[in-house]
Write a protein that binds this DNA or RNA. Structure first.
Lengths: 257, 257
DNA sequence: AATTAACGGTTCACTATTTGAACTTCTGTT
DNA sequence: AACAGAAGTTCAAATAGTGAACCGTTAATT
């Protein structure tokens, strides 16, 4: 692993659930030497990527990240555009909604609106979703660039549950189905007891760049709900795509692959 | 410079004005070898910190940053809390407002609301503000931890304009004045023709963690406007501090140093 | 009050990663 | 078709990274 990779791996140890870590703890988690860990943290801190609490001496993510994220958003306002739609969909459905963005081989959850119901699906912000094992992944593949699709179909497919799609033909089939009806569905492919539908968010060229997913406890869904949620996800994802690509308004703007 | 430092230096080449760069261009800008630059970019891309446009092959900041920034904000909602107040202040004053957060020795601009007037001050998102040379810096120092203040007073003070405060006594004096009246003022200390007032945003322990500043063209300010703006910045910064520190509502919650 | 354990942080000989000149495509321009 | 500049690759040389052992503090435990 490169030194930079190690530094970034350290960053990934911070999550909404565990936003602060001590030096030794972090070193243990990452299996790096304490001296190494510290040197990396110091470098990161010099650029505001992490910061150290002056009194507890624990480390946390720094303001430089907010700054960089804003630079990105000002150029490519993915979240800015998506979040209001995500909220609206959360309201309408009462279910957990999550928004993902494609990044180096998988989908990264960049926003979550949790259902307010007691029995709900929890999705972690920052969760990495495999392309083959989630409704989001399949929705993405249904409109992915040929090279990404190929790489995924030819790559290994880990089984997260007994229900995970792990064969190339099954996955192709699922992606084709999602492409023709406009949304994907996956029951318990990644987590048992969870049923999800998802629709792809498209770039101006018609390829997927992210997904919008509705995740419900399996106990709450039937064929009807599922179809209804699928339609809703599709409609909202299409609205988002339009907004992102210069408002040619409403419906999917291209049928081109 | 450490390898990690180099990678992060590359990230800093991206700005709202220049959000994408080609490999050679980036290597030239940073004065790194092309091979080095590429290896660093590949490492960054593996973690979604940058991404490469598939067709133009240019690099830009990646979704991993949005994710990490959100993790930070979910733990420490600095921007989330501040931005509405910043907007409101921008409306009320009609001037450019900027929000900064302290990070490793200086202030980092994390949000900007530009004045809508034709003659306005432009502040770049991500701009690094020196503690000794800006209204924000002085406001920060007025409530800074003793060690930070000491380091600043004893460190070198670059003169950005003929008006920059560069002596220890002048700076101490400016910080004391800001402390007693609640806001700082600096005319042309960083950029000629710009007059700013700023107030510190405090942590629960009463120390500054950031600042809120109003920047106006010198031609538009007089003693009255300045005092009025100063009071406004102070009031809003105090409101923000209260919100951040668990709503003991209104006014500065501590007089303790 | 003394003892222990765990923490953050530092050092320096050893070693593995990083570096960069030179190379090969590839792409768009004259 | 020749050229210019871009992206990306290679490998010997050199630099930057590593980690065991260290110190000083703090916070439990006896």
């Amino acid at each position: 692993m490169s030194t930079v990779g190690k530094a970034l791996f350290l960053l990934e140890q911070f999550s909404a659930a565990e936003p602060e870590h001590g030096l030794s703890e972090l070193a243990r988690r990452a299996s790096f030497d304490k001296a190494t860990t510290r040197r990396l943290l110091v470098s990161l801190a010099e650029h505001g990527i992490v910061e150290q609490d002056i009194e507890s001496r624990r480390y946390r993510l720094g303001p430089g990240l907010s700054r960089l994220a804003r630079v990105r958003e000002s150029h490519f306002p993915f979240q800015q555009v998506c979040i209001p739609y995500v909220r609206e969909l959360a309201q309408e459905t009462g279910e957990t909604i999550h928004l993902s963005e494609y990044s180096s081989g998988s989908l990264m959850t960049v926003h979550v609106e949790l259902s307010t119901r007691a029995n709900r699906v929890n999705v972690d912000l920052g969760q990495i979703l495999p392309l083959h094992g989630t409704a989001s992944g399949i929705a993405f593949l249904s409109r992915a660039r040929a090279d990404i699709l190929k790489a995924c179909l030819e790559g290994p497919m880990e089984a997260y549950t007994p229900f995970t799609v792990t064969s190339r033909t099954q996955l192709e089939e699922a992606a084709n189905q999602a492409r023709s009806r406009g949304y994907s569905r996956s029951d318990q492919g990644f987590e048992e007891g969870v049923s999800s539908v998802a629709a792809p968010i498209l770039n101006a060229d018609g390829f997927a760049i992210g997904t919008l997913a509705i995740a419900s406890p399996l106990s709450r869904v039937d064929t009807d709900t599922c179809e209804r949620h699928g339609q809703m996800a599709m409609r909202v994802a299409a609205d988002i795509s339009s907004r992102l690509n210069g408002e040619p308004t409403a419906l999917q703007n291209e049928r081109a692959s």
